[in-house]
């Protein structure tokens, strides 16, 4: 089958992004860390399960007994008991999700920002734009390449951890797989900031500062319930405006954990407002890129 010219061009843009990301070694680093993670769960962690509870957990041969602290329904006092196996599995999966959500996004942005900035430097962009493909298609190939890399890496980590834990314990929690689209989506939201800033300014440093700054601000936004009680008009309205306008990277965590653990979601605002923010930033970046003089 002969591929059409637009398909070949698009594959060229994708290939360029994949190769660039691979050459930075951050991709390789994340792949190695993911591999170590599932190898650790496979070979270093051993479980003794008695009647559905973890009697003993051995890591590299060192034994410990995971316990749960629960309140006695009769006396009302706190007491310890062996942790349920399903709870341990969900706990490990939540830990893997949290770590990959934060580290994956921060490192992913750290790798992608200079990559995107190098693409728009004078010594590269002139030749790339002289090729007979539209600017939108070229940039779409680049963005899709970044997204695809993050999707592949998060799939590799989450799927391997899920398979290892499920096969070892016999407890299958399919909702953990939702971590894959959530990590990719929230990375995408933060990457939209990087793309917009790089396309406008050409500076990867400024793009990193802006996106990390927004993550920092999202810590403040996450405390909106406490902060709103302290504010008066118009501070309250301004804070609420920022809460709905800016990406809620931190507040999306409880949302994601509820989804991953299979619990009902209490608040959809953090994720929907983040998606809207990302979509607007991507739209702005594409528009700016298509009109900019390089």
């Amino acid at each position: 089958m002969i591929a059409s010219r637009p398909a070949i061009q698009f594959s060229g843009s994708l290939q360029l992004t994949f190769r660039e990301l691979w050459s930075t070694y951050v991709t390789l680093g994340l792949f190695v860390v993911s591999t170590i993670c599932w190898l650790f769960l496979t070979f270093a962690m051993n479980l003794d399960v008695v009647e559905g509870s973890v009697a003993a957990l051995r890591i590299f041969g060192f034994e410990s007994t995971p316990t749960d602290h629960i309140r006695d329904p009769e006396t009302g006092e706190w007491m310890s008991q062996s942790m349920g196996l399903d709870k341990l599995v969900v706990g490990i999966q939540s830990f893997v999700f949290g770590a990959s959500y934060f580290l994956g996004t921060l490192l992913g942005i750290f790798a992608a920002a200079p990559l995107t900035a190098s693409l728009v430097t004078e010594s590269r962009i002139g030749l790339l734009l002289s090729k007979p493909l539209s600017r939108h298609r070229f940039l779409a190939g680049h963005v899709l390449g970044v997204f695809a890399t993050v999707l592949l890496l998060s799939t590799y980590l989450v799927l391997s951890v899920w398979l290892v834990l499920s096969l070892k314990t016999g407890i299958w929690v399919p909702s953990f797989l939702l971590a894959i689209p959530i990590i990719t989506l929230m990375f995408g939201v933060m990457y939209s900031v990087v793309l917009l800033v790089v396309v406008i300014t050409g500076s990867s440093g400024f793009a990193l500062v802006t996106s990390y700054g927004l993550i920092f601000i999202s810590f403040i936004l996450a405390a909106q319930e406490q902060i709103l009680t302290q504010l008066i008009t118009p501070g309250k309205e301004i804070f609420l405006g920022l809460y709905y306008l800016l990406p809620n990277f931190i507040e999306a965590v409880p949302f994601a954990v509820q989804l991953v653990e299979g619990d009902p979601v209490q608040n959809w605002v953090p994720i929907t407002s983040s998606i809207v923010f990302g979509a607007v930033a991507f739209f702005g970046a594409f528009q700016w890129f298509s009109r900019k003089d390089f």
Partner: peptide
């Protein structure tokens, strides 16, 4: 190969 691909050559 990369730049020819961006030009749409098979």
């Amino acid at each position: 190969d990369l730049y020819a691909r961006l030009s749409g050559h098979d």
